[in-house]
Simulated assay, not measured.
Amino acid sequence: MIIKTVQFVKSAVKPSQYPEYDFPEIAFAGRSNVGKSSLINTLIQRKDMVKTSSKPGCTQLINFFMINEILSFVDLPGYGYAKVSKKIRAQWQPMVELYLSHRQNLLGLILLIDIRRDPQKEEFDMMDWLETHDIPYLVILTKSDKLSKTNQQKRLLSICTRLGREKNGVILFSTKTKQGRDTVLEEIENLMGIYNE
């Protein structure tokens, strides 16, 4: 998949604010500070289309981006960041659940996990929910450049074991080296092919 055009569409907090179009959507979800915004910027090859921050918990809205005028990327608020107020965290979960359960356009989800961290309850809950609702998803291990090649493979095996997934069902990704970028875009293209059949 070659990304030629990218356009920020809008931000939303509830269904009435979602864009009114019929384009398929790929959502991106993960723990705060997992590198979600950076990953999307790497996929679309734009440095600051999606706002990034070293301070976790900055994405507090659902952000929609139009890709090639045929597909939308949806950046969901991160979860699990303790320093964000309980009030804000209490607003995020229903916002994300509402989007996932009601958005007819949702084609699939990309679940990001920091390669240096073990999957937690939130990741397992998300996977269970997606499987229950028959929504395809990819698991991506971000920040792979933080580890040596040997340790990348050790962590990959360990996380795959915990998740009950094959090694080829999880993608190593680095925004720094662009490791995994082409593979992720291929998987999105495969989903698009299924959608267009």
Rank of each mutant, 00 (worst) to 15 (best):
P119M: 07
P119V: 05
P119Q: 08
Q120W: 02
Q120M: 15
K121M: 09
E122M: 15
E122F: 15
E123Q: 03
F124Y: 01
D125N: 09
D125R: 14
D125T: 05
M127T: 08
M127G: 02
W129P: 01
W129Q: 03
L130V: 00
E131W: 03
T132R: 12
T132E: 13
H133Y: 08
D134E: 13
D134G: 02
D134A: 12
I135K: 15
I135W: 02
P136R: 11
P136T: 14
P136G: 06
P136E: 14
P136N: 06
Y137H: 15
Y137R: 09
L138W: 07
L138M: 15
L138C: 10
V139I: 15
V139L: 12
V139K: 04
V139A: 06
I140Y: 03
I140N: 01
I140F: 09
I140G: 02
L141W: 04
T142S: 13
T142A: 08
K143G: 04
K143W: 08
D145Y: 07
D145M: 09
K146P: 06
K146H: 02
K146I: 14
L147N: 07
L147T: 06
L147I: 10
S148E: 10
S148W: 03
S148A: 10
S148L: 11
S148G: 14
S148I: 11
K149H: 06
K149G: 02
K149A: 14
T150P: 00
T150D: 07
N151T: 01
N151H: 03
N151E: 07
N151A: 01
N151F: 04
Q152Y: 00
Q152L: 09
Q153N: 10
Q153A: 06
Q153C: 03
Q153G: 01
K154L: 10
K154R: 11
R155K: 03
R155F: 00
L156C: 10
L156H: 07
L156E: 02
L156A: 07
L156Q: 07
L157P: 00
L157H: 05
L157M: 15
S158L: 13
S158E: 14
S158G: 00
I159S: 01
C160E: 03
C160M: 11
R162N: 09
L163R: 01
L163T: 07
L163C: 06
L163N: 00
G164H: 08
G164E: 00
R165G: 12
R165C: 07
R165L: 15
E166T: 13
E166C: 04
K167G: 02
K167D: 00
K167P: 15
N168H: 15
N168R: 13
G169D: 13
G169C: 06
G169W: 04
V170L: 12
I171C: 05
I171Y: 04
L172N: 09
L172D: 12
L172S: 05
F173K: 04
F173S: 03
F173P: 08
S174Y: 09
S174P: 11
